[in-house]
Computed example of a mutant assay.
Amino acid sequence: MRWVLAAFYSAAGIAHLWVPETLLLITPAWVPFPREVILATGVFEIAASVALVSRSGLRWWAGLAMALYALCVWPANIKHALDGIEMPVIGNSWWYHGPRLAFQPVIIWWALFCAGVIDWPWRIAKRASR
């Protein structure tokens, strides 16, 4: 699970660095220095992905940061959906937006779980089997 999440975040990071202009379309107007933020988040996503799959003590922090980041980008995903912004490859369909918005809490949980920040729901199942 950790490697799959790291692959998704790395791909997103590469997209942030490669085509920041495209992501400017969905960046809320209240974000200061939007182009620089997009580039910085691309570097973050790649670095956090490396830390997540490493055996270092950074894994816990990477998972926590990835979860917080997923929460912080939710407004951009909402803007993308509600404003009907057409983006290359992704397009503008609720077949994309609906699952994407609903999956955001799962991404947050996934990052926390993969980093060992939380162990829910398996911890509960282990207690019940005692």
Rank of each mutant, 00 (worst) to 15 (best):
residue 28 P to I: 07
residue 28 P to K: 03
residue 29 A to C: 13
residue 30 W to T: 13
residue 30 W to Q: 13
residue 30 W to E: 15
residue 30 W to I: 12
residue 31 V to N: 01
residue 31 V to F: 04
residue 32 P to V: 01
residue 33 F to Y: 15
residue 34 P to M: 01
residue 34 P to C: 03
residue 35 R to I: 04
residue 35 R to E: 06
residue 35 R to C: 00
residue 36 E to N: 08
residue 36 E to S: 12
residue 37 V to C: 09
residue 37 V to M: 12
residue 37 V to T: 07
residue 37 V to A: 11
residue 38 I to S: 05
residue 38 I to F: 08
residue 38 I to L: 09
residue 39 L to C: 12
residue 40 A to D: 04
residue 40 A to P: 11
residue 40 A to H: 04
residue 41 T to V: 03
residue 41 T to R: 10
residue 41 T to M: 02
residue 41 T to P: 05
residue 42 G to S: 06
residue 43 V to P: 08
residue 43 V to W: 10
residue 44 F to T: 12
residue 44 F to N: 14
residue 44 F to E: 08
residue 45 E to F: 14
residue 46 I to A: 05
residue 46 I to W: 04
residue 46 I to K: 02
residue 47 A to D: 10
residue 47 A to P: 14
residue 47 A to T: 10
residue 48 A to K: 09
residue 48 A to D: 03
residue 49 S to F: 08
residue 49 S to E: 07
residue 50 V to P: 06
residue 51 A to F: 08
residue 51 A to W: 11
residue 52 L to M: 14
residue 53 V to T: 12
residue 53 V to G: 04
residue 54 S to M: 11
residue 55 R to Y: 05
residue 56 S to N: 10
residue 56 S to L: 15
residue 56 S to E: 15
residue 56 S to H: 09
residue 56 S to Y: 06
residue 57 G to F: 05
residue 58 L to S: 15
residue 58 L to N: 08
residue 58 L to P: 11
residue 59 R to H: 10
residue 60 W to A: 15
residue 60 W to P: 07
residue 60 W to D: 11
residue 60 W to Q: 10
residue 61 W to E: 11
residue 62 A to D: 09
residue 63 G to T: 02
residue 64 L to H: 01
residue 64 L to C: 06
residue 65 A to Y: 02
residue 67 A to Y: 04
residue 67 A to P: 09
residue 67 A to G: 08
residue 69 Y to V: 00
residue 69 Y to L: 12
residue 70 A to S: 15
residue 71 L to R: 04
residue 72 C to E: 12
residue 74 W to C: 13
residue 74 W to A: 09
residue 74 W to R: 00
residue 76 A to M: 09
residue 76 A to N: 11
residue 76 A to H: 13
residue 76 A to F: 06
residue 77 N to L: 07
residue 77 N to D: 03
residue 77 N to H: 12
residue 79 K to D: 01
residue 79 K to A: 11
residue 79 K to T: 12
residue 80 H to A: 00
residue 80 H to S: 00
residue 81 A to N: 13
residue 81 A to F: 02
residue 82 L to R: 05
residue 83 D to I: 01
residue 84 G to I: 02
residue 85 I to K: 00
residue 85 I to F: 00
residue 85 I to E: 00
residue 85 I to Y: 02
residue 86 E to F: 00
residue 86 E to A: 08
residue 86 E to D: 14
residue 86 E to Q: 12
residue 87 M to C: 09
residue 87 M to D: 06
residue 87 M to Y: 03
residue 87 M to E: 13
residue 88 P to D: 05
residue 88 P to I: 07
residue 89 V to N: 14
residue 89 V to L: 13
residue 89 V to G: 03
residue 90 I to N: 04
residue 91 G to A: 07
residue 92 N to K: 02
residue 93 S to F: 04
residue 93 S to Q: 09
residue 93 S to Y: 06
residue 94 W to A: 06
residue 97 H to K: 01
residue 98 G to K: 06
residue 98 G to P: 08
residue 99 P to F: 01
residue 99 P to S: 05
residue 99 P to Y: 01
residue 100 R to P: 03
residue 101 L to I: 10
residue 102 A to I: 09
residue 103 F to L: 15
residue 103 F to W: 10
residue 103 F to H: 13
residue 104 Q to Y: 04
residue 105 P to D: 07
residue 105 P to N: 03
residue 106 V to D: 00
residue 110 W to I: 02
residue 111 A to G: 00
residue 111 A to Q: 03
residue 111 A to H: 02
